[in-house]
């Protein structure tokens, strides 16, 4: 925990892999999330209690948000997008726990998530439309735009990673600096800001991922729909 400001600390080596505190925190989050999920869902009943109602509310909220963007692929996208939101909320807020750093203040973690979003866009797109039809949308409306499409794919992925990393890292740095400079109660407003920012950043990252994935799925569908409408006319 020596270099707790910008980069993650390597806690131990597991073969060729360096295990940083980001990974350990992520494991803790996964374990806690998995355990809580199991505890909640093991006794689901027809008449829900408070916890079940909250769990159903969370799932329903995520489902409705996805349904607004990709109504035909809600159930297909729910595990990935929902997990992104839940993980990012927990990961962003975990920085509020003393001695724990948010995994999302590590560029390696945010890059991994951004890469997953990048890959999932293509994965869902190809699964829905097929490889040829999916790749064909890069040539629309004109093959000349292909380089711009590629650049757009890369830059938005980088933007995803850097945006989340920058915001969370800066929040934690700010909180740390104020805690060092000011007294014990001074960082409280900053911590409040941390909560809001953590929720907003999780929402932004998840919503952008959803839009990218839905765009990959529906890009060819829009073209096909237009073509169909033209044929009907």
């Amino acid at each position: 925990m020596e270099n707790s400001g910008i980069t993650a600390d390597i806690l131990f080596q597991l073969g060729p892999l360096q295990i940083s505190n980001t990974i350990v925190t992520t494991w803790a989050i996964i374990a806690a999330t998995g355990l809580i999920s199991w505890l909640i869902t093991r006794g689901l009943q027809r008449e829900p209690g408070r916890i079940q109602t909250a769990a159903e509310g969370v799932v329903n909220g995520i489902e409705e948000a996805i349904h607004e963007v990709a109504p035909e692929h809600t159930r297909q996208l729910l595990p990935f997008i929902g997990t992104l939101w839940l993980f990012l909320i927990i990961a962003n807020l975990s920085g509020l726990i003393p001695g724990v750093h948010s995994p999302t203040r590590d560029l390696s973690a945010t890059s991994a998530l951004a890469i997953l979003v990048f890959l999932s866009v293509h994965w869902f797109g190809i699964r829905t439309q097929g490889l040829k039809a999916y790749l064909h949308h890069y040539l629309r409306p004109s093959p000349i735009l292909l380089p711009f499409h590629i650049i757009s794919e890369i830059t938005r992925t980088i933007a995803l990673a850097v945006r989340l990393f920058g915001n969370i890292m800066s929040l934690e740095m700010t909180a740390l600096l104020i805690l060092l400079v000011a007294g014990f109660l001074a960082p409280i407003p900053i911590l409040m800001l941390h909560i809001i920012e953590a929720l907003v950043q999780a929402y932004i990252f998840g919503m952008l991922a959803l839009i990218y994935v839905a765009g990959g799925i529906q890009s060819q569908q829009v073209t096909q729909q237009k073509q169909k409408e033209k044929n009907e006319e």
């Binding site: 993650a8 980001t22 996964i30 997990t83 590590d106 973690a109 991994a112 890469i115």
Partner: peptide
């Protein structure tokens, strides 16, 4: 602001495991 590949790959695996668990 260094990119740690171990963290990068493990984070991908962790996330996929979390997706599966959830």
């Amino acid at each position: 602001m260094e990119l740690n590949w171990s963290t990068f790959f493990l984070e991908i695996i962790n996330f996929l495991i979390l997706v599966w668990i959830l």
